[in-house]
Nucleic acid binder design. Structure first.
Length: 316
DNA sequence: AAGACGAAAGTGGTTGA
DNA sequence: TCAACAACTTTCGTCTT
């Protein structure tokens, strides 16, 4: 076996130990993995028996096995349409030894490459996915969606394909709807407005697609809570953590009093931040708050009034 | 002058007959 | 399917800081 004696490659590791044989003075120290020894190649003296085995801990009996067990290669990436696991044929026209290919071989490889590429993105479903994943990536980075959300969105979209929900509908709309669903599921919601603004899909269309996903895929998605928005809004407004914390307390208090149902969660989050900001000496204008929360000043005002009148703010 | 406030009219979505 | 309805938006005039 190759790994039993690899004299040169691993000699470095011996540097701070003995790198010569104490018996015969020989300089060629080799590893014996089967016994776990460093030994002198000249006299056979065992120099050290604490060898670190860096050979594979598994055994393979054929090439397929070997490929299966090898951990070399990029990790699976669910956001690529084939999860990044497919083979690509390189573009250099050289063989394994680095020799140039003959013209016949060259044309052979040209055909191979072509068909390999075609096979990779073969079905219309795959082509669909390629487009969808690109779109998901684009909107994901524009909205700063975390990686986990993109992955969830990817899963949702694949399910949508499997359930034949895409045909006859716009890919982009379904992708964005998947992203919206994923963001809500992961409790880092974006509003329909935000999603619509960064895509070519109207809010209305987006809502329709989203509801379709909910019904057809039986997704269970918690309804968005104002608290989910607070951390993002407060970051946008450069508010401190204490203010955000206070706003969350405020929302929870409002929830307990049952004055949150039916109200726009973003509006509530905005009003809570407004109040908390004033209390913490981090005043923001209603305009700034409204902009960050993508609601109007009027809504901020209405929620603000409602919260201050119906809530005893001293309870905080 | 900027921000806060409130009234009035309009919009899109839900609900219940 | 339609009307009633609640929440939100737009717009605009007035008040406060």
């Amino acid at each position: 076996m190759m790994n039993n004696f690899d004299s040169k490659d691993n000699l470095d590791r011996l540097e701070n130990e003995k790198n010569y044989c104490s018996d015969c003075g020989g300089k060629t120290i080799v590893k014996d993995y089967q016994r776990g020894d460093y030994i002198c190649a000249e006299c056979g003296m065992i120099i050290s028996d604490q060898i670190i085995d860096d050979s594979p801990e598994w055994r393979s009996y054929n090439a397929v096995d070997n490929a299966k067990k090898s951990r070399i290669g990029s990790p699976m990436n669910i956001n690529l349409h084939d999860k990044g696991l497919s083979t690509k044929i390189g573009n250099e026209n050289i063989d394994g030894q680095g020799n140039k290919l003959s013209p016949t071989q060259k044309s052979q490889f040209y055909r191979l490459r072509k068909w390999n590429a075609r096979a990779r993105i073969s079905s219309s479903q795959d082509r669909n996915l390629v487009q969808a994943m690109n779109e998901l990536d684009r909107i994901g980075s524009q909205l700063g969606l975390p990686k986990g959300v993109k992955e969830t969105a990817s899963v949702i979209y694949r399910n949508a394909i499997r359930n034949n929900l895409i045909r006859g509908r716009s890919i982009e709309a379904m992708v964005v709807a998947s992203a919206y669903a994923a963001a809500r599921q992961r409790r880092v919601p974006r509003t329909l407005d935000e999603m619509a603004k960064h895509s070519r899909i109207s809010k209305k269309e987006l809502g329709r697609c989203y509801r379709l996903l909910l019904v057809e895929l039986k997704l269970k998605i918690p309804l968005a809570s104002p608290t989910d928005y607070i951390s993002r809004f407060s970051a946008d407004l450069k508010l401190t953590g204490t203010t955000a914390r206070k706003a969350i307390d405020l929302v929870n208090l409002a929830k307990r009093k049952g004055i949150t149902t039916g109200k726009d969660p973003t509006g509530l989050a905005a009003a809570a931040l407004y109040i908390a900001g004033m209390g913490e000496g981090e005043r923001r204008t209603q305009r700034e708050i409204a902009e960050a929360a993508t609601v109007t000043e009027v809504t901020v005002r209405n929620r603000y009034k409602e919260l201050t009148t119906k809530l005893d703010l001293n309870e905080l």
